[in-house]
Amino acid sequence: MNEPRRPEGDLRAAVRRKGSFWQSMRAVAWSFFGVRKSSEHEKDLGQLNPVHVIVAGLVAAALFVIALVLLVRWVIGSGVAAG
């Protein structure tokens, strides 16, 4: 009989992956643009540490929100928005 897979073992193996944080940041940046080769995606799935990807996603989302807030403040402050 087949032994059931243990997800915690898969997670531990995934966390031990050697992908760098910067590789994770690059993958997250490409995902924000929505432009990604299927082969690159598959390669990243096998190399990247999921913890790095989560942290990189949170950092990228925070930077995106900060950039939007700064852009809105600049537009409002410059008077461009006053129609």
Rank of each mutant, 00 (worst) to 15 (best):
R26P: 00
F33W: 12
E3G: 03
L68Q: 10
K18Q: 11
A61T: 10
V72P: 00
L68W: 04
V65A: 14
R16M: 03
V80E: 09
A56V: 01
V65Y: 09
Q23E: 15
I66R: 07
V72F: 15
L45N: 09
V28M: 04
R12N: 03
L45D: 07
L48D: 01
A62E: 08
F64K: 12
G19P: 02
V35Q: 07
I76T: 11
V59A: 09
S20G: 09
Q47Y: 05
V72N: 11
N2P: 07
P4A: 14
A62H: 10
I76F: 05
A81D: 07
V72Q: 13
E3F: 10
K37A: 09
E42I: 08
L11K: 13
A61V: 03
M25T: 05
G77S: 12
H41F: 15
K37S: 10
N49I: 01
L48Q: 01
V53G: 00
V75T: 06
L11F: 13
A60M: 14
E40C: 03
K43F: 14
V59F: 07
H52V: 03
L63Y: 08
S78G: 07
A61S: 10
S39A: 15
L58V: 12
V72S: 13
L45E: 09
F32E: 12
V72M: 14
S20E: 06
G57T: 11
W74S: 07
M25H: 04
Q23D: 11
S24I: 01
W74Y: 12
E3A: 12
G9H: 04
A61G: 02
V65H: 09
P50H: 08
V53I: 15
V59K: 04
I66M: 05
W22A: 05
R26W: 08
E40L: 13
G34V: 03
Q23V: 00
K43I: 03
P7M: 14
S39F: 15
R6N: 15
A14T: 02
A81W: 14
A29F: 08
